[in-house]
């Protein structure tokens, strides 16, 4: 299990959300979503555009405060909770510095003082980008930037990693590389929560599927069951491609 705070620190998972809602003005984007994220699982959030996937992810990560409902981590230590998670966005935000310095920045902000450079190099090596350590990150390709973003997240040794459609704008080769890194992170003990609109990707990665539709959590089902025998008519239609994406 990933243990960013060191041996003996309390785990932040499971994460329980109850009746989570989020409003943008008069529009209710998320409606009374309740879920539980267990440690070591790969949770894929799917649903058509506008279903509230990204909002849910940002809320779980703490970037958005729920308009209603509650989030409860396994520990009450706020620093431990913040440092126990990381997020990778659809469009990676790279600082105007080298690939290695981008990771060093994250490590220093995360409180690391010693061995920062070595840790950043190791993180880049884990995603197969050791040779790019001195290249300005913004001059790397889209796929490389997303791998750097994953290396940055991995370097923080999060207990849980949130990914918001990390391969949405990548070609199949880059997508495969990203999926391999996610699998490696999961194998190293990181819990995965990821949104995607790619059903094939959901099949490849998910242990469990959270299907959102119009702001509601319509299904929360083991992946195999979701794809073979979806419980809801909305999910059935979505899998058949009958709903708008």
């Amino acid at each position: 299990m990933a243990d960013p705070a060191g041996a003996g620190a309390p785990a932040i998972l499971p994460l329980a959300g109850s009746d989570l809602s989020w409003r943008a003005g008069d529009v209710e984007i998320l409606r009374e979503v309740s879920l539980r994220i267990e440690p070591g699982t790969r949770n894929i959030v799917i649903g058509p555009n506008g279903a509230g996937k990204s909002v849910l992810l940002r809320m779980l990560h703490g970037l958005l405060a729920p308009s209603g409902g509650q989030l409860a981590w396994a520990t009450a230590d706020p620093l431990r909770i913040r440092r126990g998670q990381a997020m990778v966005f659809q469009r990676p935000v790279m600082l105007r510095r080298t690939a290695r310095e981008n990771i060093e920045f994250a490590l220093r902000v995360g409180g690391m003082r010693e061995g920062v450079r070595a840790a950043a190099r190791a993180a880049l090596a884990r995603v197969g980008l050791a040779s790019l350590e001195d290249r300005p990150a913004r001059l790397c390709s889209g796929g490389e930037q997303q791998r750097i973003a994953l290396a940055r997240a991995w370097a923080l040794r999060p207990e849980i990693l949130f990914l918001d459609e990390p391969t949405a704008s990548l070609d199949p080769a880059a997508t495969r590389a990203i999926e391999e890194i996610i699998a490696a992170m999961h194998a190293a003990g990181t819990t995965i929560v990821m949104t995607t609109h790619d059903l094939g990707q959901a099949r490849r990665i998910a242990d469990r599927v959270l299907f959102l539709h119009r702001g509601r959590l319509v299904e929360d089902t083991p992946a195999r069951e979701f794809f073979q025998q979806p419980r809801s008519p909305e999910a059935t239609a979505f899998i058949k491609g009958e709903l708008l994406w």
Partner: peptide
């Protein structure tokens, strides 16, 4: 607006965000 979510996700403080932005820009 471009950096906000990433820097907040990394738990950067206001001061760290300001320094990162000033250097990057």
């Amino acid at each position: 607006s471009e950096y906000r979510e990433q820097l907040l996700s990394l738990n950067a403080t206001r001061w760290q965000c300001m320094r990162a932005l000033l250097w990057d820009l």
